[in-house]
């Protein structure tokens, strides 16, 4: 039973971590390699709430807002001229990630630090005791997924974003301010990345390079998922589940490679991944 819980909660963590990257990739068609550094930023937002002695729950909105604010600046200054040059955008965001990490190192130091967790302890569930925080994280992931799916499907911004995804020239011709759509999307993507960073701090250490290992898995999941939240959820569940199963029954070392390997295989067999086309 604990295997089932491990699978779904791992999928929840992966989904949360990859969501911001998916938003940017889905609409803007660029890979934001500063995603790992934004996760780190969010984790330091959690650290700041701990240092200030305010409620650990405030880490979540603080992370989202600071990520979004950074996204605003970055989109204006760095990303905007590069939409037509996705390869240069990769280089630019990669470099940006290094800059963010170094600035964090300068401000907070190189060492591993500790942020308080809003929840701790275990709870009895399905005849087993399980970490409360992992279960809560699963709930938050599902809620965020539903919220943003609703945003895309049900709001004007979502409609515009979808129009931009389908045919940008036509969308612009119809009077949609594509520049604004892009700016908002990038900010939301960055905000979600930072939020995910704050969400994982109770499971992870807080140090200037903590985002890097997460970036690789998030990147693979987004490559497989394409542009939809549903297929990202599916990819997180299948690849994350495979990781847990391989780790449990074969070896955690192979488990660590499972997501990357499976993603490569999936893309070889079906270039569209779990997406529809």
């Amino acid at each position: 039973m604990s295997l089932l819980l491990d699978v779904v909660t791992t999928a929840g963590v992966l989904f949360a971590v990859a969501m911001g990257l998916l938003v940017v990739f889905g609409v803007l068609k660029i890979i934001n390699f500063a995603h790992g550094a934004l996760l780190t930023l969010g984790a330091y937002a959690a650290l700041v709430t701990t240092k200030l002695g305010i409620s650990a729950w405030l880490a979540w909105p603080l992370a989202f807002v600071s990520g979004g604010a950074l996204g605003l600046v970055v989109e204006r200054l760095i990303v905007r001229p590069l939409y037509a040059r996705p390869l240069d955008a990769i280089l630019a965001t990669w470099g940006l990630g290094i800059v963010i990490s170094q600035v964090i190192t300068l401000c907070f130091g190189r060492e591993v630090q500790f942020a308080r967790s809003p929840l701790s302890g275990t709870i009895a569930i399905l005849g087993d005791t399980y970490s409360v925080y992992r279960l809560a994280l699963l709930g938050v992931s599902v809620a965020l997924g539903l919220l943003f799916a609703a945003l895309i499907e049900g709001t004007r911004l979502g409609l515009s974003a979808r129009a931009v995804i389908m045919n940008e020239d036509l969308a612009r011709g119809l009077g949609i301010d594509t520049q604004r759509v892009r700016l908002l999307t990038f900010m939301i993507g960055c905000g979600l990345a930072a939020l995910a960073g704050a969400l994982i701090t109770p499971l992870s250490s807080v140090d200037p390079n903590m985002g890097v290992p997460w970036l690789i898995n998030a990147f693979m999941l987004v490559m497989v998922a394409g542009a939809s939240f549903l297929s990202l959820a599916l990819a997180s569940l299948i690849l994350g589940g495979a990781q847990v199963i391989v780790s449990t029954f074969v070896s955690p070392i192979l488990g660590g490679m499972t997501i990357v390997l499976l993603a490569a295989v999936v893309l070889r067999l079906r270039p569209a991944g779990f997406g529809r086309d």
Binding site: S2, T10, R134
Partner: peptide, 15 residues
Amino acid sequence: EYLPMDGTDWTPIIS
């Protein structure tokens, strides 16, 4: 049980 040095998720090992 071992996890690679950059591994972050100890869940299966803890189970």
